[in-house]
Amino acid sequence: MRRTLRIYRRSLGAHLRAVLEYEADFWILVVAGLLFQVLNLIFLSAVFSHVPALNGWSFPEAVLLAGTYGFVNGLGPLFFEGTWRLAGKINHGELDYPLIRPAPVLVQVVSAGIGMHGVGDLIGGGAMIGYGLANSDIAWSPARIGGALLLLAASATILLSLIVLGNAASFWVGGNHPVFAMTLIRTGDMAKYPLSIYGVAVRATFTVLVPYAFISFFPASWLLGKESAWIGLLTPLVAVYCVYLARLIFRQGLRRYDSAGH
């Protein structure tokens, strides 16, 4: 495990150094990432200047929710960007080399790239979380802080697992582009708003079928003491389940890997 982590870190580090060679590109990407978070914030502030609450969520609470979603989404490009190239790798038979190296294939795949727009998401999302927390009514205690951090880690785990899972579908779907993963992850964008605004079908889907709601809605509900806050505490369990599922599907997919005909 330690060895695996070291390989992951080194690989990511090498790609980071390569990306930082182009300073202008780095800044453009960071700003672009940041702009999208700012857009979310502007939307919410414009809406809340006309209404006091959105389905019982105040402005700071809604900002906390969207910020959490943005923050967690920034982790994908920073730490799992390589995953998005899996479809192309499968299609071109480029998993041949990872398969002959003494390191887990998934680690080699996941760490084969880095997207700096994640930095913008982290900054923007982080700032929104900060604002949301500072202006919400939360009874802080050591347990609450610990719980919040745990839930954040779990929610990040869920999203990263979904990224792996969606991209691993490329083993079956084929083609050069991770269409399935894109659809899976982009659909999750709906989770940046309180889940209660959606119809029952969407709510059920986002809770049970694809657990987007555990990325931001349920953890934030727990922290803010919304109704059925206890569901938020299930987030770590959901995370464990997602990791298990993602690994399983990736392994099954890898067994189907057929290389390419040259």
């Binding site: 182009y22 202008a24 590109d25 453009i28 990407l29 700003v31 672009a32 990432g33 702009l35 999208f36 700012v38 857009l39 502007i42 939307f43 414009a46 809406v47 200047s49 006309h50 727009h117």
Partner: peptide
């Protein structure tokens, strides 16, 4: 060299100022 960032930044700006994000009156 990198068009991705430029394109996203443009998209963000267009979305905001065109009114696609929210009606301009709001």
């Amino acid at each position: 060299q990198n068009f991705m960032g430029v394109s996203w930044a443009k998209d963000a700006i267009v979305t905001l100022f065109s009114g696609a994000l929210i009606p301009l009156a709001l």
